[in-house]
Design a protein around this nucleic acid. Structure first.
Lengths: 211, 211
DNA sequence: TGATTGACTGACCATCCGTTCAGCGTTCTG
DNA sequence: CAGAACGCTGAACGGATGGTCAGTCAATCA
């Protein structure tokens, strides 16, 4: 299972092109990251990119997939742990905020992909390739919330809508932090979000085991 | 103060071009609404647009201003009324959801403007022209929340962050409705949002008049 | 060491889109 | 009614950008 020299070089190229693409897209936005920009950022010629990616769409798609896989990896780990919902939420928002701090550039890419915009062609592309990634993320969180509802930790509402509300609310605050010259401690914003979430969704009265 | 014939025609042209621009931008997105598209939608020649707007930027800017002024008008009316915070929130989210239902096309324009994307030139433009509009909206809501905090109706947190969290959470659910083939009754989603908001921010224990 | 390969290059092409402007028909004006 | 004035048109222009491909050259082979 040794990798041949060519395979190593190939992987290195693919990876460095994707990293360059991520930087450029984050800096200039989805629509205005040109192939020339990306090539220059990667220190190679434009044509070289086409040796590793069929076209611009494939490059952006693969780049996005690689990046979001990292976020999913972290968040899934947190969601899988057996914790009371409040702690789970805290860990989730903490992980999300840390990830976006460490990958501030990707965060802008993420924001620009959440909502279809651009040409109708690109819209279709986003709907096929990005919307599922995003929905999968919301759905995974919604499932966690639904479990918590079944356990009586959370009052019963549409779990998908609840997940949307909380994640987008948290994203909004995370985005705000990016634009602040001196944002408050990350932990205090996590506390804020968890506070808003929990005191809104936790059943405070006596817990009834509704089974 | 009678309008001359030319003024009437001028206003009519400006307005119909803006309406066409709004429709096209909403349908195809900020970046891919071309002047040709807009002209065709308005039933005039491309060049005619330049008789009424200096360039593409000015057209989009004026269009956005006109549209968001309507939203602000409605929301401000609601926020100005003297109501307990829970009712105020309900009215706010109700107004917002109704506006976006009646102007579903504008909603997509609004979403695409919230976050700077596009060329660096466009980013700068958005930061100057759209970000203030958006921030003004959040700030107005934050002021209402701050008043409620002073009156002891809401527990004390950073009002701007709270406003962001609630508005973006609500926007996420409103957006979700747009993509659903058979969304639930509007009022039930308003209830959901208000429920999440209020039970998170209202002080439930004894009210202490902390003055 | 000379031949061969193929990764890489970057000038080039086709297309798209914002903007311009010479010319057209229509409407005022004297 | 002639001719100026004006609103409007859409072909053409220039700049930008995704994608191509003939050529280069260093590594490898025989």
């Amino acid at each position: 299972m040794v990798k041949s020299k060519e395979e190593v070089v190939q992987e290195y190229r693919v990876q460095s092109i994707q990293e360059a693409a991520m930087r450029v897209i984050s800096r200039k936005g989805m629509n205005d990251a040109t192939m020339a920009d990306i090539a220059k950022e990667a220190g190679i010629a434009k044509g070289t990119i086409y040796l590793y990616f069929r076209d611009r769409d494939e490059l952006v798609e693969k780049t996005f997939e690689t990046a979001i896989a990292q976020l999913h990896g972290r968040v899934d780990t947190v969601l899988a742990r057996d914790l009371p919902i409040e702690e789970k939420l805290r860990e989730l928002f903490r992980a999300q905020m840390a990830f976006f701090r460490e990958n501030a550039e990707f965060f802008r890419l993420y924001l620009s992909l959440r909502i279809p915009s651009g040409s109708s062609h690109q819209k279709r592309w986003q709907k096929r390739h990005c919307a599922p990634q995003y929905q999968q993320r919301i759905t995974a969180f919604a499932n966690v919330l639904e479990d918590a509802m079944k356990r009586g930790e959370v009052r019963k509402v549409d779990p998908y809508r609840l997940a949307l509300f909380l994640i987008e609310g948290a994203v909004a605050i995370t985005f705000e932090r990016l634009n602040e010259s001196a944002p408050p401690a990350e932990e205090s914003d996590v506390d804020l979000i968890v506070g808003l979430a929990v005191e809104g969704i936790v059943i405070r009265k006596q817990k009834r085991s509704t089974n």
